[in-house]
Amino acid sequence: MASLKDIKTRISSVRSTRQITSAMKMVASAKLHKAQGAIENMLPYQTKLNAILTNFLRTDSTIDSPYIAVRPVNKVAIVVFSSSTSLCGAFNANVAKHFVQVLEDYKHLDQKNILIYPIGKKIEENIKKMGYEVQGSFQHLADKPSYKESSELGERLMDLFASKEVDRVELIYHHFKSTASQTLVRENFLPLDLTVDQVDKKIKGKNIDYIVEPSAADFIANLLPKVITLKMYTALLDSNASEHAARTMAMQIATDNANELIQDLTKQYNKSRQQSITNELLDIIGGSMR
């Protein structure tokens, strides 16, 4: 049985850990509030814009764009979003696990025909351990989402797709629903999906007669690249908000567990102390009766 001193030392140690986890939870919660505001402001705009554009492309068969071309997949690019730091529960482990599942779908391709763009230190390290070569380092984007840099990455992937160097581009990231819920998403970035099932059910099946000036071709040429790059930035914000939410929950759970452990140790300490006093009293009583 542990001595009173050992139990007291452990209680002190757990209390120190609780202070750390509690502070980390407060920091993560503050970052989450900012990240949640960013994604909640961006997502409705991006969703509606994508819905309008998708419906426009579906209703006009004369529109031609290199970004809607569906080809047999001989070469694929995968953008994977994770965090650059730990202590966020199973956030990064789930991303890595899902990434392995996606690779299974492309096991018929040579490794050189799978281009991987990791966003976040954790997934980048994981991919390198698996023996894959990464197409650049984007660790800083996981901590500080940047529209400029995410747009440059989006444009880079668009150029690869338009020049037929890759036949498909996929995104793997967490979609933020609430502080307690984040869903892993596997989404086609290119070619554009011309179904609106996931985008906006209100306009599904409707053939809206758009009036476009100066011409539909100019409209597509100017707007389509912006919509696609915006999609990359939205995924980045989504992943960032999900990371902070996961860390907030993980630190809350850790703090709650520390509180429970302190209560159990305190009970154990009081019980051991009571037992020690009882034994001493028994020794005194037994000695006086001799």
Rank of each mutant, 00 (worst) to 15 (best):
P225I: 12
A246Q: 03
D238W: 02
S181G: 02
A180G: 07
G131D: 11
P118Q: 12
P225Y: 04
I172S: 04
V212G: 09
D167S: 14
K148Y: 11
D256Y: 05
I208D: 00
R186K: 11
I127R: 05
R168F: 00
Q135Y: 06
F176K: 04
F138P: 00
E165F: 06
S150M: 10
K177Y: 13
K206L: 15
M158Y: 02
E243D: 05
I123A: 01
A162C: 11
K206R: 07
Q135V: 10
D238E: 14
K226E: 10
I253G: 03
D200R: 05
L194G: 02
Y233V: 04
E213T: 14
H244E: 11
K202I: 14
L160M: 15
I123T: 07
I208S: 04
E133C: 08
L115C: 09
L190D: 06
A221V: 05
E125C: 06
L223M: 10
K231A: 09
V134G: 05
A180W: 00
N240H: 14
F219M: 12
M158W: 01
L190K: 00
L171D: 07
V169Y: 04
I172T: 02
T179K: 14
L153R: 05
V166R: 03
G205C: 06
A258P: 00
V166L: 04
P145Y: 03
V166Q: 02
Q182N: 13
D197M: 07
M251K: 03
A254E: 06
S163M: 09
S163D: 14
M130E: 13
T195A: 09
D200W: 07
Y147I: 07
L223I: 10
A254R: 01
L160A: 12
Q252Y: 06
Y132M: 11
V185F: 07
G120F: 02
T234F: 05
I203E: 03
F189I: 08
I253K: 09
V169F: 07
K226N: 08
S146A: 13
G154H: 07
Y210F: 15
S137D: 01
L194T: 08
I253M: 09
P214Q: 04
I119W: 01
I123G: 02
T195P: 01
I211E: 12
A250H: 04
K128C: 12
D256I: 08
K231N: 08
E170S: 14
